[in-house]
Design a protein around this nucleic acid. Structure first.
Lengths: 150, 150
DNA sequence: TTTAAATAAGACTTTTTTGGTCGTATTTAG
DNA sequence: CTAAATACGACCAAAAAAGTCTTATTTAAA
């Protein structure tokens, strides 16, 4: 019913890893598996999905692998989740989709979940993938609260 | 693994319903079941949880029922989800909790999911339950975009 | 004082989703 | 030709979610 799961986590870990590589340098699924324990098969399929959606570029064959193909500052978390898990609806409305309700997108007479989904979608759109991969934002703010130098 | 599910939906629907009643007027689980199709048992248990957490007040016996006991503007969506589903972690870190990692709260070297959880928690805290129950915010903004009078 | 209607709560079952595996094909460097 | 990699479909197992069943308790009212 909901969204954000292991696949998304593997995607984020993979992207973070690739981000720290020199431009053009490739990353293999095996590498991600060994370094972070991401299951090979699952991770592979996530990477392949990202290739299909144009977020990654792949090279096949021996010495093949994946690399980032887009500017991650311009890719929202919403985009990422959607490409991996499909259309985002954090919670399904019990009067929703499958019952053929037509005013579903704007209806929130019955279920406030419509409103919730909209708000969450907005939030996800406002969050760039690059932002999520930044290390230690929280720590930095804690340190600055203590008055230490960055 | 994640959060926000039917239980939360039933909670929101129930709260919305009770909100439209005169002060002191009670709502029964049966009523919610008949009006909105929320399964009686599940809804009952959600309501009981909200009673335990002080968000609702209940009266037992014949003519009993539930009513809202707190100002919903002061209850965040985070509070609501937490009381119904427990501590919020939209996605578990594969190097997280159960493996006994101690710097987990601040660590995001390996998994950006830590960062993500923190950001989502902040967002949920900034969202009041009252806000979610407001009807038709989106519509209103669409109308104002069209230049119509509110 | 009995009955009916309601909350309260535990145990259980079913269904759905998620996570992971297996097998095979294809591509490509060496 | 072989080894190492992506690509992809089908399948299985485990976990989570959703719902049901049962019983106890409370209380208004007949």
């Amino acid at each position: 019913m909901n969204k954000i799961n292991r696949k998304v986590e593997y995607a984020l870990i993979s992207l973070k890893h690739m981000r720290n590589k020199a431009p053009g340098e490739l990353t293999t699924a095996k590498e991600l598996n060994l370094l972070y324990g991401c299951p090979f098969d699952v991770t592979s399929r996530v990477l392949q999905t990202m290739v299909q959606k144009g977020l990654l570029r792949s090279e096949q064959g021996a010495h093949g692998g994946y690399q980032i193909a887009k500017d991650l500052q311009k890719v929202s978390f919403y985009d990422l989740v959607e490409m991996i898990l499909g259309p985002i609806a954090v919670a399904k409305c019990i009067h929703g989709a499958d019952t053929g309700c037509e005013i579903r997108d704007t209806c929130n007479i019955v279920s406030p979940v419509q409103t919730l989904n909209r708000k969450i979608a907005e939030f996800y759109k406002s969050l760039s993938v690059a932002e999520l991969l930044e290390p230690r934002q929280a720590i930095r703010s804690v340190i600055s609260e203590r008055g230490a130098t960055a």
